[in-house]
């Protein structure tokens, strides 16, 4: 940076700066590789800690047994009840989030004025930023009592209320990813539709939505993956008892709720209870990974479309 007063040759300074650049570049690459290390570490830790679990429990039992009672005197290790709980809460969440999120996305992308959009989007973003434990409180203390007025037989812990609140949580997510996809549809397609005399709604449902379909599908799939991995809402509001049922008005534990329940106790490092949460975590990772990959491939497709 400073001008060399003595005849310290210019090329020396250039070389010094080049060397410094090389060192810095390797440091930056190292930081980038942290993401790769993290993924590898996740898979490695989950597999390594879950493996001893499968010494005790056969893989077939794990996938087909209908009871999950790892902390009982006579433990049974069938993941099905937890998977059922996860699927039911996810399904309830999607039943709310997909219609609501899609309507908001269509409205913001095709109908709302620029000013309204700029005003509303940050607030929606905040809805997605509410801590999940606060949403759990909301489900347990506010939504459940309200639902109990409609369905008097509803127990204090139930999957319906937890699922609905997960739905509220993922609405902003579904809405913003779908809206991005809709806005990527080129304007000449809308103009063509208007020129044929279509209304805004017709243009939205028959031109924009079909054009953005893979992006919208990606939004749904990423929403599913969020709902499957949601933990605190179900741990607070859906109950912690594994229960093989497809009825959302019952109480049941999800995969995530089970992990929380075990973590709250102080289990020794080598116990089978400790290993069982890694086995459950592995199932969760595989499921969310499958959805994420599908969503990722779909978003890629819609980017290439135009």
């Amino acid at each position: 940076m400073t001008t060399p007063a003595s005849p310290a040759p210019l090329w020396k300074s250039i070389r010094r700066r080049r060397v410094r650049d090389r060192v810095i570049e390797s440091l930056l690459l190292l930081a980038g590789l942290v993401a790769v290390f993290t993924t590898v570490a996740i898979v490695w830790i989950l597999v390594a800690e879950a493996l001893p679990f499968f010494d005790h429990v056969s893989f077939a039992d794990f996938l087909t047994d209908t009871m999950w009672t790892p902390l009982f005197a006579e433990p049974r290790y069938g993941i099905l009840p937890l998977v059922a709980g996860t699927l039911v809460t996810t399904f309830v969440a999607l039943a709310l989030a997909i219609p609501a999120g899609t309507i908001i996305a269509i409205y913001l992308s095709e109908f709302a004025s620029h000013r309204l959009r700029e005003l509303v989007k940050p607030v929606l973003e905040m809805l997605g930023a509410v801590p999940t434990v606060v949403y759990g409180y909301f489900a347990l203390v506010m939504v459940t009592p309200f639902l109990q007025k409609l369905i008097p037989s509803l127990p204090g812990f139930n999957m319906l209320s937890a699922g609905l609140v997960i739905g509220i949580m993922i609405v902003p997510y579904v809405a913003s990813v779908s809206e991005d996809a809709m806005r990527a549809v080129p304007n000449y397609m809308r103009e063509g539709s208007y020129a044929m005399g279509a209304t805004r709604l017709q243009t939205a449902t028959r031109v924009v939505v079909p054009g953005a379909l893979s992006g919208i599908a990606a939004a749904y799939i990423l929403g599913i993956s969020r709902a499957v991995g949601e933990t605190m809402i179900v741990a607070v509001a859906a109950g912690l008892q594994p229960n093989l049922t497809w009825n959302p008005t019952e109480s049941a534990a999800t995969i995530t709720a089970f992990i929380v329940q075990v973590s709250l106790g102080d289990l020794p490092h080598d116990s089978i209870g400790y290993q069982s949460i890694f086995a459950a975590g592995l199932v969760l990772l595989v499921v969310t990974l499958a959805f994420n990959v599908a969503g990722f491939m779909l978003t890629r497709r819609f980017r290439e479309a135009y």
Binding site: A35, T38, T39, I42, I45, L46, E49, L222, S225, R226, V228, G229, E230, T231, T256, I259, V260, S263, I277, F278, G281, L284, L285, T288, L289, F291, N292, V293, G295, F296
Partner: peptide
């Protein structure tokens, strides 16, 4: 991919 991994997996 990491952006989509559930937070409880990070806990494990």
């Amino acid at each position: 991919n990491l952006a989509g991994v559930p937070s409880i997996i990070y806990g494990l």
